[in-house]
């Protein structure tokens, strides 16, 4: 057996690679759809990294990709979605959360939703689809994000929902004082 010692200081390891099979390269070859050999979970991770619209478009590729999208972790980002009216966006997100079989991992909505769409935000937070949510962003525009530090400066909804900014940043504790489990996996909440 041959032993290859890897020298961390050697650059240019390319020479070790076998030439691409079939003289391909460039991926223009017909019918070599090797990406479909990857397991659903891996394709799901790729779909998750896409903006909401791009992710949804992958469904058009095949029934396999439709299945992947439906069960992949979902990334809902209002920027780039073609809804101008808040109500249309709310309806869209509600529909998407309800229909999605996978978990929702990231949601970004405009900050005003905290005030003007409070009921909808609450309903989303109660959905089991959000059990594995990692990021909930209330987007304030292209300004630096900031955190409210005094609970009395929080609008009513926020006090009601999260009790205090401290609990809100420790996703595991969001459930304190509530019978239902709120966002047990939330890692980041951006205000």
């Amino acid at each position: 057996m041959e032993t290859v010692a890897i020298d961390p200081h050697a650059e240019a390891k390319e020479a070790q690679y076998p030439p691409p099979e079939g003289g391909g390269g460039g991926g223009e070859e017909e019918g070599v759809d090797i990406i479909s050999n990857l397991p659903d979970a891996v394709l799901g991770e790729i779909v998750f990294l896409l903006p909401t619209k791009d992710a949804a478009r992958t469904q058009a590729l095949s029934s396999r990709w439709r299945r992947v999208w439906r069960s992949s972790p979902l990334n809902i980002d209002h920027t780039g979605l073609p809804f101008n009216k808040g109500d249309a966006l709310v309806a869209f997100i509600t529909r998407t959360i309800d229909a999605h079989q996978g978990s929702v991992r990231h949601i970004s909505v405009p900050e005003r939703f905290l005030y003007h769409q409070a009921a909808a935000v609450k309903a989303w937070l109660r959905s089991p689809a959000l059990d594995n949510l990692q990021e909930f962003e209330f987007y304030t525009g292209p300004l630096p994000r900031y955190l409210y530090t005094k609970s009395n400066s929080l609008p009513r909804l926020r006090r009601e929902l999260f009790r205090s900014p401290a609990t809100l940043l420790h996703g595991g504790e969001v459930s304190r004082g509530r019978p239902d489990r709120w966002l047990p996996a939330l890692q980041k909440l951006l205000l």
């Binding site: 991926g27 223009e28 090797i34 478009r57 590729l61």
Partner: peptide, 13 residues
């Protein structure tokens, strides 16, 4: 990309 463009990029038939 559009679905057709994705298909081509990923080497779908």
């Amino acid at each position: 990309k559009s679905p057709m463009e994705i298909r081509r990029t990923l080497g779908f038939p």
